[in-house]
Simulated assay, not measured.
Amino acid sequence: MSTPTARHSTLDDTQGIAFGSFMAAVSVVLLTHLGFVTGQTAGLAILISYATGWSFGPVFFAVNLPFYWLGWKRFGPTFVAKSFMAVALVSALAVVLPAHLHFGQIHPAVGAVLAGCLTGAGMIALFRHGASLGGIGIVGLYVQDATGFRAGWVQLAFDAVLFAVALALRDPATVGWSFLGALILNLTIALNHRRDRYIA
């Protein structure tokens, strides 16, 4: 016999989105400190930041803007409002945190694993409170609905192109360590976020 599950309150969602956004922003500060890249729209924003010298925060906010319309059609206004809040928080924190958070010498392997875990924990919190940080997943679902091509493969293809472009801006070793971080991130989410086990 199943037990009724209480839905998240507004306060629950607020603290969950704040926590997830903070963890993701700390990870961005760590990634950029190490010169690493990552996948999805955050990775795109980091690459643009490296190539242009522009601050990550405003770039990340801007690259996500085109995806809100798709998110509205696919998931509805509540998802878009929560995701907009999360993206805005990460963008703002990524500007503010570097003045208050400083890293010393970090072995690339440790940095990659830590960044993956931080982002993974943040993303799980956001997912569980009905929010997201990136638009590529939404595009993937649209492609899947329209063509039958799996959304996961769309995201993988995007990340493959992203890391290929990263080789033009970063040395191969740095891109390799970055890939390790992205792998840890995806494993963290895959092993710890199951809709059939967490339904609140």
Rank of each mutant, 00 (worst) to 15 (best):
M1R: 13
M1T: 10
M1A: 12
A6M: 10
R7Q: 14
H8W: 14
T10L: 11
Q15S: 14
A18R: 13
F19L: 14
F22P: 07
M23W: 10
V26R: 12
V26Q: 08
V28A: 04
V28W: 02
V29H: 09
L31Q: 06
T32S: 08
T32A: 00
H33S: 04
G35C: 02
F36G: 02
G39W: 01
G43M: 02
I46G: 01
S49Q: 02
Y50V: 01
T52D: 05
T52N: 11
G53K: 09
W54F: 11
S55F: 01
S55W: 02
S55C: 03
F56C: 04
F56P: 02
F56L: 05
V59I: 11
F60V: 03
N64E: 03
L65C: 07
P66N: 10
Y68P: 04
Y68R: 12
G71D: 02
G71Q: 05
F75D: 06
P77Q: 15
P77R: 15
V87N: 05
L89K: 13
L89P: 06
L89A: 13
L89C: 12
V90N: 08
L97Y: 05
H102A: 11
F103N: 11
Q105I: 01
Q105T: 07
G111L: 00
G111I: 00
G111P: 03
A112I: 00
V113F: 08
V113E: 08
G120T: 07
G120V: 04
I124T: 14
H129F: 12
A131M: 07
S132W: 01
S132A: 15
G134D: 03
G134K: 04
G135N: 08
G137Y: 01
G137S: 10
I138F: 06
L141A: 13
L141W: 04
V143D: 07
A146I: 02
T147Y: 10
T147S: 15
T147K: 11
F149A: 13
A151G: 08
A151S: 15
W153V: 09
V154I: 08
Q155G: 12
Q155L: 12
Q155Y: 03
L156A: 14
F158D: 05
A160G: 12
V161L: 15
L162Y: 04
F163D: 00
V165Q: 08
A166E: 02
A166M: 04
L169T: 03
D171S: 06
A173L: 12
T174W: 00
T174L: 03
T174Y: 02
V175N: 03
G176D: 00
L180N: 03
L180M: 05
G181W: 00
G181L: 01
N186L: 01
L187I: 10
L191E: 12
N192P: 05
R194C: 04
R194K: 15
R195T: 07
R197W: 13
R197D: 06
R197Y: 10
Y198G: 01
I199F: 11
A200L: 09
